[in-house]
Design a protein around this nucleic acid. Structure first.
Length: 547
RNA sequence: GGCCCCGUAGCCCAGCCUGGAUAGGGCGUCGGCCUUCUAAGCCGAAGGUCGGGGGUUCGAAUCCCCCCGGGGCCGCCA
């Protein structure tokens, strides 16, 4: 068992109530329990008295001494015993793994066909991928699902634009850019010739009516888009277990809307503009009357998402469904989940929402072609890394790619999800301080030592500098669980920064090779390397070998 | 108007879920550290009404209420 947990459980049983240990300020011990305060009321004694008494009763192999201070009981661990608990585990590949045994379906990335992914999709993609990896590592079965936006009015415009202006060669080479180019062209031309709008509407109708030519064009757009997205996914190391799209749930959406009507969960709207539409009745829940079927009988995202949700439940029999989608859609998901509950779905349903990605000084508009290509973001980061590496003579294309892409990934993950983030080139591609390269640099430093010598290990009682590092290493399994519980990779990202900081500090003040304590420090460096490597992988970063 | 998210140093953020010790980092600024495992690093300094007010509590950045500021959503778009 993790030594922190072990002591926590021991102290809890001693106190008779579950208590959470906390990390005390420097110098006050290794672990602390504010027991006196907690128990003062029930025991009708002073906090100081209580902690003194409990401190005296503490007797445990992991505890060297327990010092009462005010309402606190401060624990000093038996360092050697503590290290023994980690000795094998911390330097082994699966350090911190779990056996949670739940099944998750996690919906992430989910871009719209025939449009470039924007920075918001990037956030979803990276967060989702990381969550998938963390949950999997903890022993869960996770289905990663890419739910494409392959329905929408833009297809009418695209078909018109395709027939008039497409450059087939460009389309093969860079489908996303060419599709965007003709889409933008369409909106420019509409200004001059408004009849194009009408033409687009007709093509859309034909598409929806199943016109073979338009359907095959739409399929082509879909295929090409996916090919374009794959380039990004490959570079990010993102892979999905299932790729599906809204278009597959049109029939299901109709059926479920009827069923909701029969069950009295939905009703036909009787007045005003949306007369004849089928709406869900969520008045009681304060969630309005969202439309399920339009008055012309066609489906809408809510009913399609609902059909899709029911399919996910049936197909994968998960314990939990996660949707990594921007917070702007929180009302939609509250509506969706509320209806699902009414249908008897009793799974954990979570909208893993994240704040907006603002792009400085730019009003992004796909129609006007004002977009940031994700490839450009990655390329810029990689170029900057390459320049730095060349300056220090460590350049290799593989490592520059790893470090550059990881810097963007880390930037996306280091902030708490609900917060809006501001995309600024200076920030995203800044490599000092709280950044991906900072973490990776610590990792590379550890690797470098171990490349020169990697053993044998010798168990010694840790000195103060080593001890500070060991205490943090031991928290890795705890951090992973917290990150998973909160569905937020930033917990792990912040931890890796802490660990990197402590290792850099250690590295600058202590020798490993040639030191009398070499055998022990080699173990320590191996453990640091192991945690930094595993941590990077769980954040969907790629550990470099040199930098 | 209703609902949701955010507000912590010049700038960016962690801590809030689960209340506990003098509120932690990064960027930037200033000053130091490369003959020894890579200075994308390390050490030090300056920098704070935790948006405001009230409440609960032995104890509030953290929980509750009100207010202010910023953003978002409330569409037969997704």
């Amino acid at each position: 068992m993790n030594p922190y947990r072990e002591v926590e459980e021991y102290v809890s049983s001693l106190a008779g109530v579950p208590v959470r240990g906390e990390i005390p300020p420097e110098g006050k011990g290794d672990y602390a329990f504010p027991l006196g305060f907690r128990l003062a009321r029930v025991l009708r004694r002073s906090p100081a008295e209580i902690s003194r008494e409990i401190a005296e009763r503490i007797e445990h192999p992991l505890v060297e001494r327990a010092v009462p201070e005010g309402g606190y009981v401060n624990i000093f661990f038996d360092r050697e015993e503590f290290v023994k608990r980690l000795w094998e585990e911390a330097v082994s590949p699966g350090f911190g793994r779990g056996e949670e045994g739940r099944r998750y379906v996690i919906d992430y990335s989910s871009p719209n066909i025939a449009k470039p992914m924007h920075v918001g999709h990037l956030r979803s993609t990276i967060v989702g991928e990381s969550l998938k990896r963390i949950l999997t590592y903890l022993g869960n079965e996770v289905v990663g699902l890419n739910y494409l936006g392959d329905i929408g009015t833009q297809f009418g415009a695209l078909i018109v634009a395709y027939r008039r202006w497409v450059d087939e060669k460009a389309l093969e080479e860079d489908p996303i850019k060419e599709l965007l180019r003709i889409y933008v062209k369409f909106h420019e031309e509409v200004e001059k010739d408004p009849s194009l709008e009408e033409e687009a509407r007709r093509e859309l109708e034909k598409l929806e009516a199943g016109d073979p030519e338009n359907v095959s064009l739409w399929e082509r757009f879909k295929e090409l888009s996916l090919k374009g997205f794959e380039r990004i996914y490959r570079r990010l190391g993102v892979s999905f277990d299932v790729v599906t799209g809204e278009s597959e749930f049109v029939e299901g959406a109709r059926r479920i809307s009827q069923e909701l009507l029969e069950k009295g969960i939905a009703k036909v709207w009787e007045e005003g503009e949306k007369k004849g539409a089928i709406v869900a009745d969520l008045e009681k829940e304060g969630l309005n009357h969202p439309v399920l079927l339009k008055s012309d009988g066609t489906t809408i995202y809510l009913s399609r998402d609902l059909a899709s949700l029911l399919w996910r439940v049936k197909e994968f029999e998960p314990d939990a469904l996660l949707y990594v989608v921007a917070i702007e859609q929180s009302l939609h998901f509250r509506q969706l989940f509320t209806i699902a509950r009414k249908l008897g779905i009793n799974k954990e349903l979570v909208h893993v929402s994240f704040g907006m990605v603002h792009v400085e000084g730019m009003r992004l508009s796909t129609r006007r072609g004002q977009v940031i290509f994700l490839e450009d973001i990655l390329d810029t980061a990689v170029e900057r890394v390459a320049a730095e590496m060349k300056g220090r003579g460590t350049y290799s294309p593989e490592d520059a790619e790893k470090i550059g892409v990881s810097s963007v990934v880390f930037w996306m993950l280091k902030t708490e999800l609900n917060k809006d983030v501001r995309f600024r080139w200076e920030d995203v591609t800044s490599f000092t301080g709280e950044s991906g390269p900072y973490v990776q640099y610590a990792y590379v430093r550890a690797r470098n030592i171990l490349e020169k010598k990697s053993g044998p290990f010798e168990l010694l009682p840790p000195d103060d500098a080593e001890w500070r590092l060991i205490k943090l290493i031991a928290r890795f399994p705890i951090v992973l669980r917290e990150s998973a519980r909160r569905y937020s990779p930033h917990v792990l990202a912040r931890y890796l920064l802490d660990l990197a900081t402590r290792f850099h500090n250690f590295y600058d003040h202590n020798r490993v090779l040639g030191d009398p304590r070499e055998g022990f420090r080699l173990w320590l460096v191996t453990a640091v390397k192991n945690v930094l490597e595993t941590g990077q992988e769980l954040l969907a970063m790629r550990p470099p070998s040199r930098m």
